[in-house]
Write a protein that binds this DNA or RNA. Structure first.
Lengths: 213, 213
DNA sequence: GCGTGTGAACTGGTTCACAGCG
DNA sequence: CGCTGTGAACCAGTTCACACGC
């Protein structure tokens, strides 16, 4: 059980897990590295290497058994552990994200929403408990929330991120254009910046590059 | 003017462009690679290498002049070109994205929204013209739309993507968990999958990895 | 023969270190 | 003397190729 997986391998394994879940839903029990590769648009060698980080999992000659593969993935990447998340900033995007609670795969749940505007907290209709922004660190700690979806205005992002860290957050998805560098090194930050992605597409087109991620 | 920029360089340069815009708004005219690096959380050498792909831009001994740097970036990555975009699938997320039209940087604009439900098209209040899904390829072509934000249900994603390609789309941001591999190789696809990002965070925590992107 | 597992070869992006110029 | 530009060194991840099991 390595701690040395390259980041890109982790990303691909997450994708693979999702894909396995889909296979399972379709009742497919077995899949080969070539099968996976073509479905995911990734070369088969890469898939095999990635899976090998988990130890020997496949049956030589006949591919991988989906359920066993998922088992190994779950164990290695902790997908069996429950993960409690929250949404911080309940503008259009943030309140749309609250709805994700319904489609989240087993294990993930959204346990809280935060906003600095009391008005908004009162307006939004949802089953998820909502709290004013100043309670962030308290609630995060009390509710054992590990993950945050950050959709506040850019100017507030850094401060809010610190509140989250104070509450003991472990990972943040940063939807704002601000750069977040938490005081705690262990906190993982992922950036999902629509505007920047648009820029990337625009640049790629301008350069006539082709390959994607 | 290279066409050989590594993908990660392009990503960093997009970030840099955004950062320069911010500097300019604050009236800062000059910045060194170290300054950029610490603001963006990227080592200074990397910044210098990245910028060098654009040719010589800095003034030895005194860093980069922000406006000139932006000029070079705009030219190399085509940020001066206008880019027309559309949103396909107007659920919670999609209709939230329509709002982005207000915050998009100069050059970018959202010119159309699509949904298969006429009901939705009639309900949503926006200045952006909305069309039924079957008009996608026509409208995309007629309106010279180059970029698409894809927020339809996963099951529909592949088909809709093909419609976009038929209309001549150049780049797609795929918010769905489906894997999009357009028939046209030139079409660039970027995946922004919230669920998968959550999985990635969860995995990173489980592995006690630290570094982000 | 098909398909996994894996050491070895390769590739290209990142890091380093220093020359050169203001 | 600070900071850029850049060739060279390094290294991680990807790709290859083949041995082995079914």
């Amino acid at each position: 059980m390595q701690t040395k997986l390259p980041q890109s391998t982790i990303e691909r394994l997450c994708l693979l897990f999702q894909f396995c879940a889909k296979l399972q839903a379709e009742g497919i029990a077995r899949i080969s590295s070539t099968g996976i590769g073509s479905a995911l648009g990734i070369p088969a060698h890469t898939i095999r290497k990635d899976i090998n980080y988990l130890g020997e999992v496949g049956d030589t000659g006949s591919g991988y058994e989906v359920s066993r593969l998922m088992g190994h993935l779950s164990e290695a990447l902790g997908f069996n552990l429950p993960r409690r998340a929250c949404v911080v900033g309940l503008g259009r995007l943030g309140s749309a994200l609250l709805e994700y609670n319904r489609v989240l795969p087993p294990g993930f749940s959204i346990e809280a929403g935060f906003d600095s505007s009391i008005n908004r907290l009162e307006t939004i209709r949802t089953d998820i408990p909502l709290y004013p922004a100043y309670e962030i660190s308290d609630v995060v700690r009390r509710e054992a929330i590990e993950l945050a979806l950050l959709t506040v205005p850019a100017a507030a992002a850094a401060d809010v991120a610190e509140d989250l860290v104070k509450g003991g957050i472990r990972g943040i998805i940063n939807f704002t254009p601000a750069v977040i560098s938490p005081s705690l090194e262990e906190v993982v930050v992922r950036n999902m910046n629509v505007v920047n992605e648009l820029r990337f597409l625009s640049a790629s087109i301008a350069l006539r590059v082709s390959k994607s991620v």
